[in-house]
């Protein structure tokens, strides 16, 4: 279908973008989630502001013990970036597996986090790595851990006039990997798990098992307490109660969490 009537502006600076958002415009990043929603009329913003011409929002650089990734950086750039591949492999690997080439050419890291799809791969990978976002709005700038950003299905703790400007990835995420299961190439993950093994121990996060990316705390505590990988896998689903749906039953998804956590952990350890 054709999107409903809208007013389009293309911001050329962050200040312009923030002013437009404050005036009620919906940010348009890669459009890989927003455009289909507009075509289905699940979203009908009266105004959109295109972030594609804002120089402050693109690019990847080292900043102290973190990597700063502009919100408008595409999945393709994240997947191919040497810094991210070296320090936060889990995030590069998740980005490389998003949708298809055409989706990765346009879809962005900031858009993925803001969209907060409970099946989105990037949020789980960034949560496993221990990443955060920098957001800006009329109240100034603040930093939010990714675990506190996504609060439920398609819902974040961003204020209406706030934009994600940067994603911060720790350089100390250690060895890390992402494993997911989906039926066909372009499908969203039924379940996906990111694991990082850093100086502070194992961190693991999964999608497809709740209304937001979930830390696998039982899996983490078994391994961080010196337990075996087999025990950790057996307990990976503890505390989670994914809804059964067309993708699979609750039991099946809990089974997948264990299998994928094991795979991601084995791959991370061998890296």
């Amino acid at each position: 279908m054709i999107p409903s009537t809208l007013e389009y502006t293309k911001a050329t600076s962050l200040d312009e973008a923030l002013a437009a958002v404050k005036a009620g415009a919906r940010p348009l990043a890669g459009g890989m989630s927003l455009m289909p929603m507009m075509r289905l009329r699940l979203a009908a913003p009266g105004a959109v502001v295109d972030l594609g011409g804002v120089p402050e929002l693109v690019g990847i650089c080292e900043d102290g013990d973190e990597i700063a990734v502009g919100a408008m950086t595409t999945h393709r750039s994240v997947a191919n970036d040497p810094l991210i591949r070296q320090h936060c492999h889990v995030v590069a690997q998740a980005a490389a597996g998003v949708g298809s080439m055409t989706i990765r050419n346009r879809g962005t890291i900031g858009g993925s986090l803001a969209h907060a799809d409970p099946h989105g791969d990037l949020p789980a990978a960034i949560l496993a790595a221990g990443g955060a976002v920098i957001v800006r709005g009329s109240g100034g700038e603040r930093r939010i851990d990714v675990g506190d950003l996504i609060t439920s299905y398609l819902t974040t703790s961003l204020a209406e006039d706030e934009l994600i400007t940067q994603v911060r990835l720790p350089k100390g995420a250690g060895q890390s990997a992402y494993a997911k299961f989906h039926r066909r190439a372009i499908d969203w993950s039924i379940v996906g798990v990111g694991v990082s093994i850093g100086a502070n121990g194992v961190r693991a996060a999964a999608i497809g098992v709740g209304d937001r990316p979930m830390r696998l705390s039982a899996f983490e505590s078994v391994l961080n307490g010196g337990g075996s990988l087999d025990d950790a896998i057996a307990q990976a689903g503890e505390g989670l109660s994914p809804l059964g749906d067309l993708d699979g039953s609750t039991e099946y998804k809990l089974h997948l969490v264990g299998v994928l956590a094991g795979q991601a952990h084995a791959e991370a350890s061998s890296r």
Binding site: K10, M32, M35, P36, N105, R106
Partner: peptide
């Protein structure tokens, strides 16, 4: 499709493959 899934609309924009159904003409 209406869901950016089928790829029938693929074109090149400044040399990169994109879905022409998921971009506004003004972009």
């Amino acid at each position: 499709c209406d869901t950016s899934t089928c790829g029938c609309c693929t074109v090149h924009l400044d040399g990169e493959t994109v879905l022409s159904c998921s971009l506004l003409a003004v972009q």
